[in-house]
Amino acid sequence: MSASLPNTMPGLPAAPLVPEPWQVAARREETADTFTLTLQPTGEAEPMRFQPGQFNMLYAFGTGESAISISGDPSEGSSGLIHTVRRVGYVTSALARLSPGDMVGVRGPFGSAWPMEDARGRDLIFMAGGIGLAPLRPAIYHALNHRADYGRIIILTGARTPEDALYLAEQETWREQDGVEGHLTVDRAETPWTHNVGVVTTLVPKACFDPANAVAMICGPEIMMRYSAMELRKSGLTDNRIYVTMERNMKCAVAFCGHCQLGPEFICKDGPVYRFDRIRFWFSQREF
């Protein structure tokens, strides 16, 4: 036979393309189009260990798969595997029809993580737009669980309207904690609303952090991340202290299918979390 096949790494799933069955344990409506599923493993399966920022491929029986970030607490012993999903198309609508007791297929966890290690000892700025708060929530949980490891914690979130704002009550409890500064904004508010109205970038000047010793983690649509990074730069943060998360069509999540490429990056494997300076060039190219 042909000699010297490349070695493969041990310890990774032998069949990363085949889902495992998980059961929906709980379901919670977040907004009109967004819901949270808590999943439990079935049979002998272990709870999933993951890092903040990683995602799973969720399979709705007979419909298809979608990449969905894990939005729950990453610490060991926390119960259930949590995903927050926005209903936008076929698969996410099929996921939206699930109720407790139903089964889903899960593959993962995949992808890179928020830089919780490198950010130790620094102020943390979390900036989220819309559903973008879901992939950031595990990082916020981690920071709050390891409060002493970090400086100030700043949580800036934006949504279209107050009705679209994610985890509203929970955001309140975060803001109440020591050393946590939270600002919340919507694009427009018709109902009584005492938080900000305006685009999420306008929250940056309101926040108090040390730009020389802060790390920002941004999650939202690309355009929101671009303007947020610009605003953070204005306030003194350098691009190597800004992290963003990218999204592309994904079929396999293990860098075989080619769909998620952005220039040289396979977002499923090299991302979705990127240090901004590493992705900046491709970030600003149109139609890549």
Partner: peptide, 22 residues
């Protein structure tokens, strides 16, 4: 500038092809 960003509906259904570069 921020009103313009608000017009873009930053958190809605967005994809990079339609976003302006600057």
């Amino acid at each position: 500038a921020s009103t313009r960003l608000q017009l873009l509906d930053l958190y809605g259904v967005q994809h990079p092809a339609s976003s302006p570069t600057s």
